Amino acid sequence: MRAAVVNAFGGPEVVEVVETEVPEPAARQVRIKVAAATLNPVDAAVRQGVFGGAGERIGLGWDVAGTVDAVGAEAGAWAVGGEVVALAYGAVVPLGTHADYVVVDADAVAAAPKGVDAVTAATLPLNALTAVQALDLLGLESGQSLLVTGAAGAVGGFAVQLAARRGIAVTALAREADEGLVRELGAAEFLAEGRGGFDAVLDAAVLGETALAWVRDGGAYAGVIPQAVPGAVRGVRVAAVEVSADGGWLGELVRLVESGVLTLRVAETFALDEAAKAHARLAEGGLRGRLVLVP
Rank of each mutant, 00 (worst) to 15 (best):
Leu191Pro: 03
Val236Trp: 10
Ala187Val: 10
Ala177Cys: 05
Ala271Ile: 00
Ala134Leu: 07
Gly52Val: 09
Ala118Met: 13
Gly59Asp: 03
Val201Ser: 03
Glu141Ile: 04
Leu185Trp: 11
Val34Glu: 04
Val50Trp: 13
Pro25Ala: 14
Ala228Asn: 14
Leu272Gln: 01
Glu13Trp: 08
Asn7Arg: 15
Val132Phe: 02
Arg175Pro: 02
Asp63Arg: 01
Ala228Glu: 15
Val68Asn: 02
Arg195Ala: 11
Gly90Asn: 12
Ala220Gln: 05
Val34Arg: 01
Gly157Cys: 09
Gly139Arg: 13
Ala192Tyr: 04
Leu291Cys: 02
Ala283Gly: 13
Val132Ser: 14
Gly143His: 09
Gly286Asp: 07
Ser244Trp: 10
Ala134Ile: 10
Arg28Val: 01
Glu13Cys: 04
Thr263Ile: 05
Ala232Lys: 12
Ala8Glu: 15
Asp199Ala: 14
Leu129Met: 13
Ala192Pro: 08
Leu202Ser: 01
Val292Pro: 01
Pro41Tyr: 02
Gln227Ala: 15
Leu124Asp: 03
Thr149Glu: 06
His98Phe: 05
Gly223Cys: 11
Gly82Trp: 00
Ile32Tyr: 05
Phe158Ala: 13
Phe270Trp: 06
Ser145Val: 10
Gly285Glu: 08
Glu274Val: 02
Val92Cys: 12
His279Tyr: 12
Gly76Val: 08
Ala152Thr: 06
Leu264Trp: 00
Ala239Val: 06
Ala276Lys: 04
Gly247Glu: 07
Val238Glu: 08
Val80Thr: 14
Val103Lys: 07
Ala112Ser: 14
Trp214Gln: 10
Asn7Phe: 03
Thr210Gln: 15
Ala192Gln: 13
Tyr89Pro: 12
Leu250Tyr: 12
Ala79Gln: 15
Arg2Glu: 09
Gly66Met: 07
Arg183Ile: 03
Ala73Tyr: 01
Val206Cys: 13
Leu181Met: 09
Trp78Asn: 03
Lys33Asn: 08
Trp214His: 11
Ala154Leu: 10
Val266Pro: 02
Ala200Arg: 01
Val80Leu: 05
Gly81Gln: 12
Gly289Ala: 05
Val104Arg: 02
Ala154Val: 07
Val257Thr: 08
Ala204Trp: 01
Gly167Thr: 14
Leu202Thr: 01
Glu74Gln: 14
Val104Thr: 11
Ser145Gly: 06
Ala222Thr: 08
Val148Leu: 13
Leu291Glu: 00
Thr269Asp: 02
Ala122Gln: 04
Ala200Thr: 04
Ala187Tyr: 04
Pro125Glu: 13
Thr269Ala: 04
Ala36Thr: 03
Phe158Ser: 06
Asp246Trp: 11
Ala122Cys: 12
Ala112Leu: 12
Gln133Gly: 10
Val182Ala: 06
Val241Glu: 13
Pro12Arg: 03
Asp69Arg: 04
Val292Thr: 05
Gly186Leu: 08
Trp62Asn: 02
Asp100Ala: 07
Ala187Phe: 04
Gly235Leu: 09
Leu253Arg: 01
His279Asp: 04
Val215Met: 08
Ala35Pro: 00
Leu147Arg: 01
Leu256Trp: 13
Thr38Lys: 00
Gly153Ser: 09
Arg288Phe: 02
Asp100Tyr: 01
Thr263Tyr: 04
Lys277Tyr: 00
Gly247His: 07
Gly59Pro: 03
Phe270Tyr: 15
Gly235Asn: 11
Ala232Asn: 12
Ala111Val: 11
Glu176Val: 14
Val257Phe: 04
Pro12Asp: 08
Leu256Pro: 00
Val160Trp: 08
Arg237Ala: 15
Ala280Ile: 02
